[in-house]
Protein backbone atom coordinates (compact mmCIF):
# COMPACT_ATOMS: atom_id res chain seq x y z
CA UNK A 1 0.00 0.00 0.00
CA UNK A 2 1.41 3.33 -1.08
CA UNK A 3 2.02 5.90 1.55
CA UNK A 4 2.26 9.64 2.06
CA UNK A 5 5.74 10.72 2.98
CA UNK A 6 6.28 13.82 5.10
CA UNK A 7 9.75 15.21 5.54
CA UNK A 8 9.91 16.68 9.00
CA UNK A 9 11.96 19.77 9.47
CA UNK A 10 14.00 20.80 12.45
CA UNK A 11 16.83 23.10 13.27
CA UNK A 12 19.27 23.16 16.16
CA UNK A 13 17.40 20.42 17.98
CA UNK A 14 13.99 21.99 17.60
CA UNK A 15 11.13 20.63 15.59
CA UNK A 16 9.76 23.30 13.26
CA UNK A 17 6.09 24.16 13.38
CA UNK A 18 5.72 23.37 9.69
CA UNK A 19 6.45 19.69 10.39
CA UNK A 20 3.40 19.38 12.61
CA UNK A 21 1.31 21.32 10.11
CA UNK A 22 2.31 18.87 7.40
CA UNK A 23 1.66 15.90 9.61
CA UNK A 24 -1.81 17.25 10.34
CA UNK A 25 -2.56 17.70 6.65
CA UNK A 26 -0.84 14.37 5.95
CA UNK A 27 -3.14 12.58 8.38
CA UNK A 28 -6.16 14.10 6.66
CA UNK A 29 -4.89 13.15 3.19
CA UNK A 30 -4.00 9.68 4.35
CA UNK A 31 -7.49 9.19 5.60
CA UNK A 32 -9.03 10.53 2.44
CA UNK A 33 -6.85 8.36 0.20
CA UNK A 34 -6.75 5.44 2.55
CA UNK A 35 -3.03 5.43 2.78
CA UNK A 36 -0.52 5.43 5.54
CA UNK A 37 1.36 8.41 6.75
CA UNK A 38 5.10 8.08 7.01
CA UNK A 39 7.36 10.72 8.48
CA UNK A 40 10.99 11.03 7.62
CA UNK A 41 13.36 12.42 10.21
CA UNK A 42 16.95 12.93 9.20
CA UNK A 43 19.62 14.50 11.38
CA UNK A 44 21.99 13.90 14.18
CA UNK A 45 20.83 13.35 17.74
CA UNK A 46 17.16 13.39 16.85
CA UNK A 47 15.95 10.49 18.91
CA UNK A 48 13.80 12.54 21.23
CA UNK A 49 12.20 14.26 18.28
CA UNK A 50 11.50 10.90 16.74
CA UNK A 51 9.58 9.99 19.83
CA UNK A 52 7.38 12.99 19.44
CA UNK A 53 6.83 12.65 15.73
CA UNK A 54 5.96 8.98 15.85
CA UNK A 55 2.85 9.84 17.79
CA UNK A 56 1.32 11.41 14.68
CA UNK A 57 2.21 8.95 11.92
CA UNK A 58 2.12 5.32 11.02
CA UNK A 59 5.79 5.06 10.35
CA UNK A 60 8.74 7.21 11.10
CA UNK A 61 11.93 6.66 9.17
CA UNK A 62 14.92 7.91 11.08
CA UNK A 63 18.48 8.25 10.01
CA UNK A 64 21.27 9.81 12.00
CA UNK A 65 24.57 10.84 10.49
CA UNK A 66 27.09 13.64 10.91
CA UNK A 67 26.44 14.60 7.31
CA UNK A 68 22.82 15.19 8.21
CA UNK A 69 23.56 17.22 11.31
CA UNK A 70 22.80 20.51 9.73
CA UNK A 71 20.53 20.80 6.79
CA UNK A 72 22.42 20.30 3.57
CA UNK A 73 20.22 19.56 0.60
CA UNK A 74 22.82 17.33 -1.08
CA UNK A 75 22.99 14.43 1.42
CA UNK A 76 19.29 14.90 2.21
CA UNK A 77 18.53 14.54 -1.48
CA UNK A 78 20.45 11.33 -1.72
CA UNK A 79 18.78 9.77 1.32
CA UNK A 80 15.35 10.84 0.14
CA UNK A 81 15.94 9.60 -3.39
CA UNK A 82 16.81 6.28 -1.90
CA UNK A 83 13.72 6.22 0.30
CA UNK A 84 11.40 7.21 -2.52
CA UNK A 85 12.83 4.48 -4.72
CA UNK A 86 12.47 1.98 -1.92
CA UNK A 87 9.07 2.90 -0.60
CA UNK A 88 7.36 4.31 -3.66
CA UNK A 89 5.17 6.83 -1.85
CA UNK A 90 2.30 8.34 -3.80
CA UNK A 91 2.83 11.77 -2.31
CA UNK A 92 5.77 13.54 -0.72
CA UNK A 93 5.17 16.63 1.42
CA UNK A 94 7.80 19.14 2.38
CA UNK A 95 7.68 22.64 3.78
CA UNK A 96 8.02 25.56 1.45
CA UNK A 97 10.76 26.85 3.68
CA UNK A 98 14.41 27.67 3.32
CA UNK A 99 14.84 23.94 3.80
CA UNK A 100 12.26 22.75 1.31
CA UNK A 101 13.02 25.36 -1.29
CA UNK A 102 16.60 24.13 -1.41
CA UNK A 103 15.70 20.46 -1.48
CA UNK A 104 12.41 19.80 -3.21
CA UNK A 105 13.10 20.97 -6.79
CA UNK A 106 16.36 19.02 -7.31
CA UNK A 107 14.95 15.97 -5.58
CA UNK A 108 11.86 16.02 -7.75
CA UNK A 109 13.87 16.67 -10.86
CA UNK A 110 16.37 13.92 -10.17
CA UNK A 111 13.60 11.44 -9.38
CA UNK A 112 11.33 12.61 -12.19
CA UNK A 113 8.57 13.50 -9.79
CA UNK A 114 6.07 16.26 -10.62
CA UNK A 115 6.35 19.01 -8.06
CA UNK A 116 4.05 21.83 -6.99
CA UNK A 117 5.57 24.41 -4.66
CA UNK A 118 4.26 26.78 -2.02
CA UNK A 119 0.78 25.27 -1.80
CA UNK A 120 -1.74 26.55 0.67
CA UNK A 121 -4.34 23.83 0.09
CA UNK A 122 -4.39 20.24 -1.11
CA UNK A 123 -7.58 18.57 -2.22
CA UNK A 124 -8.29 15.02 -3.15
CA UNK A 125 -10.62 14.49 -6.04
CA UNK A 126 -11.06 10.87 -6.86
CA UNK A 127 -7.60 9.54 -7.42
CA UNK A 128 -6.13 12.88 -8.00
CA UNK A 129 -4.34 15.07 -5.52
CA UNK A 130 -4.96 18.69 -6.38
CA UNK A 131 -2.73 21.37 -4.94
CA UNK A 132 -3.73 25.01 -4.76
CA UNK A 133 -1.20 27.77 -4.75
CA UNK A 134 -1.10 31.53 -5.01
CA UNK A 135 0.25 33.59 -7.84
CA UNK A 136 0.90 37.26 -8.51
CA UNK A 137 1.84 38.04 -4.97
CA UNK A 138 -1.35 36.54 -3.61
CA UNK A 139 -3.64 38.33 -6.02
CA UNK A 140 -4.69 35.10 -7.73
CA UNK A 141 -5.18 31.54 -6.61
CA UNK A 142 -4.43 28.64 -8.91
CA UNK A 143 -5.66 25.10 -9.09
CA UNK A 144 -2.75 22.98 -10.26
CA UNK A 145 -2.99 19.66 -12.01
CA UNK A 146 -0.18 17.15 -11.91
CA UNK A 147 0.93 15.09 -14.80
CA UNK A 148 0.09 11.49 -14.06
CA UNK A 149 2.87 9.81 -12.20
CA UNK A 150 3.32 7.20 -9.49
CA UNK A 151 4.50 9.85 -7.08
CA UNK A 152 3.86 13.57 -6.66
CA UNK A 153 5.60 16.10 -4.51
CA UNK A 154 4.16 19.21 -2.85
CA UNK A 155 5.83 21.90 -0.77
CA UNK A 156 3.49 23.43 1.74
CA UNK A 157 3.19 27.09 2.70
CA UNK A 158 3.85 27.65 6.38
CA UNK A 159 0.74 28.44 8.40
CA UNK A 160 -1.64 26.98 5.85
CA UNK A 161 -2.76 24.02 7.91
CA UNK A 162 -3.50 24.11 11.59
CA UNK A 163 -1.40 21.69 13.62
CA UNK A 164 -3.96 21.66 16.43
CA UNK A 165 -6.05 18.80 15.11
CA UNK A 166 -3.23 16.26 15.09
CA UNK A 167 -4.38 12.82 15.99
CA UNK A 168 -2.34 10.33 17.91
CA UNK A 169 -1.41 7.37 15.73
CA UNK A 170 1.73 6.20 17.50
CA UNK A 171 3.55 4.65 14.64
CA UNK A 172 6.72 2.70 14.69
CA UNK A 173 10.26 4.03 14.43
CA UNK A 174 12.28 2.46 11.66
CA UNK A 175 15.92 3.11 11.07
CA UNK A 176 16.96 3.90 7.55
CA UNK A 177 19.96 2.02 6.31
CA UNK A 178 21.69 4.09 3.76
CA UNK A 179 25.37 4.40 3.02
CA UNK A 180 26.76 7.74 1.83
CA UNK A 181 29.24 7.31 -0.98
CA UNK A 182 30.66 10.83 -0.89
CA UNK A 183 31.55 13.51 1.62
CA UNK A 184 29.72 16.45 -0.04
CA UNK A 185 32.79 18.62 0.36
CA UNK A 186 31.56 20.81 -2.48
CA UNK A 187 28.89 22.24 -0.23
CA UNK A 188 29.80 22.68 3.38
CA UNK A 189 27.81 24.09 6.24
CA UNK A 190 29.85 26.54 8.29
CA UNK A 191 27.61 28.04 10.93
CA UNK A 192 24.33 29.59 11.89
CA UNK A 193 24.29 33.34 12.20
CA UNK A 194 21.76 35.18 14.27
CA UNK A 195 20.73 38.66 13.22
CA UNK A 196 22.68 41.09 15.38
CA UNK A 197 20.75 42.30 18.40
CA UNK A 198 19.98 46.01 18.51
CA UNK A 199 20.50 46.28 14.83
CA UNK A 200 16.92 47.12 14.03
CA UNK A 201 15.88 46.53 10.48
CA UNK A 202 12.20 47.30 10.21
CA UNK A 203 12.02 45.67 6.79
CA UNK A 204 12.82 42.32 8.35
CA UNK A 205 10.53 42.49 11.34
CA UNK A 206 7.39 40.37 11.44
CA UNK A 207 5.64 42.76 13.78
CA UNK A 208 5.82 46.51 13.47
CA UNK A 209 4.28 48.88 15.94
CA UNK A 210 4.27 52.18 14.13
CA UNK A 211 3.67 55.58 15.65
CA UNK A 212 2.75 58.84 14.01
CA UNK A 213 2.40 62.41 15.04
CA UNK A 214 -0.53 61.38 17.23
CA UNK A 215 1.99 60.18 19.78
CA UNK A 216 2.20 63.83 20.78
CA UNK A 217 5.52 63.73 22.53
CA UNK A 218 8.63 61.59 22.55
CA UNK A 219 7.92 60.95 26.22
CA UNK A 220 5.10 58.68 25.15
CA UNK A 221 7.35 56.42 23.13
CA UNK A 222 8.36 54.00 25.93
CA UNK A 223 4.85 52.60 26.33
CA UNK A 224 4.72 51.86 22.62
CA UNK A 225 8.14 50.26 22.80
CA UNK A 226 6.91 48.10 25.60
CA UNK A 227 4.00 46.87 23.51
CA UNK A 228 6.33 46.16 20.59
CA UNK A 229 8.61 44.18 22.84
CA UNK A 230 5.73 42.16 24.21
CA UNK A 231 4.68 41.31 20.68
CA UNK A 232 8.22 40.45 19.61
CA UNK A 233 8.27 43.36 17.22
CA UNK A 234 9.93 46.70 16.77
CA UNK A 235 8.77 50.28 16.67
CA UNK A 236 8.52 52.07 13.33
CA UNK A 237 7.21 55.53 12.57
CA UNK A 238 5.79 57.95 10.04
CA UNK A 239 7.66 60.88 8.64
CA UNK A 240 6.77 63.59 11.16
CA UNK A 241 8.11 61.46 13.99
CA UNK A 242 11.42 60.85 12.22
CA UNK A 243 11.56 64.51 11.33
CA UNK A 244 11.31 65.32 14.99
CA UNK A 245 14.20 62.92 15.59
CA UNK A 246 12.11 61.11 18.13
CA UNK A 247 13.07 57.98 16.26
CA UNK A 248 15.93 57.49 13.83
CA UNK A 249 15.33 57.78 10.10
CA UNK A 250 15.86 54.02 9.68
CA UNK A 251 12.55 53.50 11.43
CA UNK A 252 10.57 55.61 9.00
CA UNK A 253 8.02 53.85 6.83
CA UNK A 254 6.93 55.39 3.55
CA UNK A 255 8.08 56.40 0.13
CA UNK A 256 10.80 58.54 1.59
CA UNK A 257 11.58 55.95 4.20
CA UNK A 258 11.33 52.20 4.03
CA UNK A 259 8.84 49.89 2.47
CA UNK A 260 7.80 47.16 4.84
CA UNK A 261 5.76 44.01 4.62
CA UNK A 262 5.41 42.60 8.12
CA UNK A 263 2.89 40.03 9.23
CA UNK A 264 1.36 42.55 11.59
CA UNK A 265 1.41 46.31 11.36
CA UNK A 266 -0.17 48.36 14.10
CA UNK A 267 -0.44 52.05 13.28
CA UNK A 268 -0.91 54.34 16.25
CA UNK A 269 -1.82 57.95 15.59
CA UNK A 270 -0.92 57.75 11.94
CA UNK A 271 -3.53 59.46 9.81
CA UNK A 272 -2.16 57.76 6.74
CA UNK A 273 -0.41 60.26 4.52
CA UNK A 274 -0.35 58.76 1.13
CA UNK A 275 3.40 58.39 1.08
CA UNK A 276 3.22 56.49 4.33
CA UNK A 277 0.51 54.14 3.09
CA UNK A 278 2.60 53.31 0.07
CA UNK A 279 5.26 51.97 2.38
CA UNK A 280 3.13 49.65 4.49
CA UNK A 281 -0.08 48.75 2.70
CA UNK A 282 1.18 45.29 1.84
CA UNK A 283 1.45 44.18 5.43
CA UNK A 284 -0.45 40.94 6.02
CA UNK A 285 -2.55 42.33 8.85
CA UNK A 286 -2.95 46.00 9.57
CA UNK A 287 -4.54 47.42 12.70
CA UNK A 288 -5.02 51.17 12.78
CA UNK A 289 -5.71 53.27 15.84
CA UNK A 290 -6.71 56.86 15.22
CA UNK A 291 -9.00 59.47 16.71
CA UNK A 292 -10.24 60.53 13.31
CA UNK A 293 -12.70 58.03 11.84
CA UNK A 294 -12.05 59.54 8.40
CA UNK A 295 -8.29 59.05 8.59
CA UNK A 296 -7.13 57.44 5.34
CA UNK A 297 -5.24 54.80 7.25
CA UNK A 298 -8.56 53.04 7.81
CA UNK A 299 -8.89 52.47 4.09
CA UNK A 300 -5.92 50.13 4.06
CA UNK A 301 -6.26 48.72 7.54
CA UNK A 302 -7.96 45.41 8.17
CA UNK A 303 -9.01 46.39 11.66
CA UNK A 304 -9.59 49.84 13.01
CA UNK A 305 -10.01 51.40 16.41
CA UNK A 306 -11.35 54.92 16.52
CA UNK A 307 -9.89 56.18 19.75
CA UNK A 308 -7.03 58.00 21.36
CA UNK A 309 -3.91 55.91 21.25
CA UNK A 310 -3.02 57.12 24.72
CA UNK A 311 -5.95 55.08 25.96
CA UNK A 312 -5.60 52.13 23.63
CA UNK A 313 -1.90 51.39 24.07
CA UNK A 314 -1.98 50.90 27.85
CA UNK A 315 -5.03 48.65 27.67
CA UNK A 316 -3.37 46.54 24.99
CA UNK A 317 -0.17 46.30 27.00
CA UNK A 318 -2.17 45.13 29.98
CA UNK A 319 -4.11 42.62 27.93
CA UNK A 320 -1.04 41.11 26.24
CA UNK A 321 0.62 40.75 29.63
CA UNK A 322 -2.45 39.06 30.97
CA UNK A 323 -2.50 36.64 28.03
CA UNK A 324 1.15 35.90 28.39
CA UNK A 325 0.58 35.32 32.04
CA UNK A 326 3.30 37.74 32.96
Amino acid sequence: MAEILVLTEHRQGEMQEISLEMLAKGQQLAEQTKKELTAVLLGKGVASMADEVKRYCHHILVMEDDLLANFNSEPYQDVLSFLIKERKPSLVLMGHTAFGMDLAPPLATAAGIPLATDCYEIEVKGDAVIPYRQMYGGKMCAEVHFKEAPCHMITVRAGSFPAEGLKEINGAVEQVSFQFDKDYAYKKFLQYVEAAVGDVDITQADVLVAVGRGIGDSENLPMVEELAKLLGGVVACSRPVADKHWLPKERQVGTSGKTVKPKLYIAFGISGAFQHLAGMKNAATIIAVNKDPKAPIFSVAHYGIVDDLMKVVPSLVAKVRERKGA
Partner: peptide, 21 residues
Amino acid sequence: GSFTTVERIFPPPVGEGAQIL
Protein backbone atom coordinates in the same frame (compact mmCIF):
# COMPACT_ATOMS: atom_id res chain seq x y z
CA GLY B 1 7.10 18.78 -21.41
CA SER B 2 5.72 20.07 -18.10
CA PHE B 3 4.93 18.23 -14.90
CA THR B 4 2.22 20.60 -13.80
CA THR B 5 -0.43 22.70 -15.44
CA VAL B 6 -2.56 25.48 -14.06
CA GLU B 7 -6.11 24.25 -14.43
CA ARG B 8 -7.83 27.45 -13.43
CA ILE B 9 -7.15 30.63 -11.59
CA PHE B 10 -9.44 32.70 -9.41
CA PRO B 11 -9.11 35.75 -7.19
CA PRO B 12 -8.90 35.12 -3.46
CA PRO B 13 -11.90 36.28 -1.46
CA VAL B 14 -11.38 39.82 -0.22
CA GLY B 15 -12.95 42.16 2.31
CA GLU B 16 -13.09 45.97 1.88
CA GLY B 17 -11.86 48.59 4.36
CA ALA B 18 -11.13 48.19 7.99
CA GLN B 19 -13.37 46.29 10.30
CA ILE B 20 -13.89 48.74 13.13
CA LEU B 21 -13.46 47.20 16.54
